[in-house]
Design a binder for these strands. Structure first.
Lengths: 213, 213, 213, 213
DNA sequence: GATGAATGAGGTTTCATTCAT
DNA sequence: CATGAATGAAACCTCATTCAT
């Protein structure tokens, strides 16, 4: 499996531990880091707190990570699976495009809600460190491009408003969903009821693209 | 005139200077602070850099501000006029709701583009300091509420899809616009052509609310 | 007067203090640094010890110096006058070249003995930090070149062995004197009687160049 | 065979390995240490670098050495043969004292040039660690004493200037040669042509002691 | 009002050394 | 004999803030 560095693009010189013991320690540090980061924020989190949480010494920390940024990268990396493959297990393709959009939005929002604190953290760090902004942007781009392709396809099939630019519309609607998720779940401003948010998002997607036509 | 503190909600003990010289110095510091913040970001900006830019001493800084947060509040405050009254001079009320929305979006996006760096900065600080997050949230809420009232009105007049929740839809659509503005103008990701963005936003608003009906 | 940096070639960003108080503090730090360096050596000297000796805080140290290397440069710089102009007040030019050489050697050795600890320190640091090696080399080169010119002149006047290469001979004899000074005064190995050393050095110079001719 | 410790005077508790495998590992470490020391200097050399170069683990290092100083002692020890017996195979005793001095100087300088990097390293460490300064001093003393005996002999036979103190003159001239070697070969300042240096050194010895008489 | 020297808490980072496997 | 994860003391350095001039 590729090292964390290669996936998030955050440079790393430290290699993955080879022994079972090393792996266990590294894992404990990543877990502890997530706890401390979510509790104190990236800036307030101190290495001592992380190592205390992982019940190891500062020196051990530096055996596995170059510094705060690198553990953070590892934390993000560890949460990728959960966020990247947001379920979408059995998309009801035959129930029409609206159903697909709804399922997709729900999957995204469910995953977002589950990792709300981490997403907030990611936003914070992205605003501080350009390398993480790049990670965030890449992730968002991937999401946007997938949606752009979908919209294009619907337009080609005559099911969606052909006057909207697929790329930009996908971007705008994706941002709408992700930002609403951010405010509702990460900032805890506004309704926290998932279904309510799914409903609005889906309606605005469907209406926005004129899918009813 | 009310102190900055009262407007942004950031506590201040420092009074506004009474002499002309004092006012000039304070102004120079706010201007310098904006330059340095926009150039280095909030975290990297050091008070020495700001006073150097303003060609005055550190001591002088503390004559007017309590610290970094307070100058930042002053910088934001100084930019409020430009952002709060985003033109909207002659809204063509009689050309129909779509025209109003378009004008409103354009006004917002024009102002955003003009203050892009500051908006990015505001985002950064909001993620760091809860007091500024509150400022940001209040601002967004005001924008959202205004839009919610409009939507409700359109629904009442039978011009908009009555099935969408006006508050949440307003919030979602407002976030869509502001976030797209942020990415395009502040992060400089994606198209920087204003009209293109105005067009998409307006179309998605109009379609989304089924205003064509 | 030129800053330390420009003379020793050690880069400095810190400017010289402008106020009297600042000058006094900086001076105290340089003096304290010399004491601590001579007592503990460059490597063992800690910044805390220096600031303690100067009765000021660590922060104050960093107001004037970038780090250990920079104070050391300042210490060396402060001692330059004493070493560079090693007296040589009334060189008895008319008593013949041997007398000139003796006076020159004596002046050098007297200055060396007076600054023996610092010279030892300089040797240590030169072996550790290439920038100081460069300073040392430049100093030695200047000394050697002056002697080379003298030898050449004596050769031209038919007073010195014409078969020796003036540059290399000057270098060799200069090194002989400086190294003997180093071992006797800095390392305190061998005789510490100045006149004895002056006598041997002078005789080896005079014989070596065949000045008796 | 006596342990390294007894020769360099550096205390050691580690015994020499008894097995063939152990000897091979130890040898690899000494070789690797020389490479790393010559490349990075004593201070910058880290034990990890040495063990990496020797392709073994840190733990293994401690099987054979107490620490950095001890491997360094072993490195020096391994190079002793080359430096201590600097050839001088068939000194042409009957060609006169000048020829002996020339042969002796050449032998020394050839050996020095071959081990220039190590000699530089030795100088560095001697300035840092008094135990190695002692090793260096002992070595220099031996060289000086041998030369002092020679000079005395020449004086007794009426072949050398009787007015120079044999001990101090020998010391001075020996330092001249060794220091010139250091600067030319270790620091690479000045001519690197061996014969040129041999010529000057020999002439200054011969002239300096008035051997022509 | 303006100045800038002085402060020092508090974080980060390194690497020789140990020791259980 | 070989391994390499774990340790933690010890030093560095920053910069917001104070205050005497």
């Amino acid at each position: 499996m590729a090292s964390i560095g290669s996936l998030t693009g955050i440079a790393t010189t430290k290699e993955m531990p080879t022994t079972r013991r090393g792996l266990r320690t590294r894992e404990a540090l990543v877990k502890a880091a997530r706890v401390v980061f979510e509790r104190d924020g990236f800036l307030n989190a101190r290495l001592v707190d992380i190592t205390a949480e992982a019940t190891c010494s500062i020196g051990t920390f530096y055996t596995y990570f170059e510094g705060k940024e690198e553990v953070f990268a590892a934390v993000i990396e560890a949460a990728r699976h959960d966020m990247l493959h947001p379920g979408m297990p059995h998309v009801p393709e035959d129930e029409g495009p609206a159903a697909v959009i709804e399922a997709s939005n729900r999957a995204y929002l469910v995953a977002y809600k589950r990792n709300a604190k981490l997403m907030k953290l990611m936003q914070q760090v992205a605003m501080i460190d350009p390398r993480f902004e790049e990670v965030r942007a890449r992730s968002a781009r991937a999401f946007g491009e997938r949606n752009a392709r979908r919209i294009k396809e619907l337009q080609d099939r005559g099911l969606a408003d052909p006057t909207v630019d697929p790329e930009l519309a996908a971007r705008a609607l994706s941002l709408m969903v992700s930002r609403l998720a951010f405010e509702c779940f990460a900032l805890e401003e506004g309704p926290r009821d998932l279904e309510e948010i799914v409903a609005v998002c889906t309606r605005l997607w469907v209406n926005g693209l004129n899918l009813s036509a």
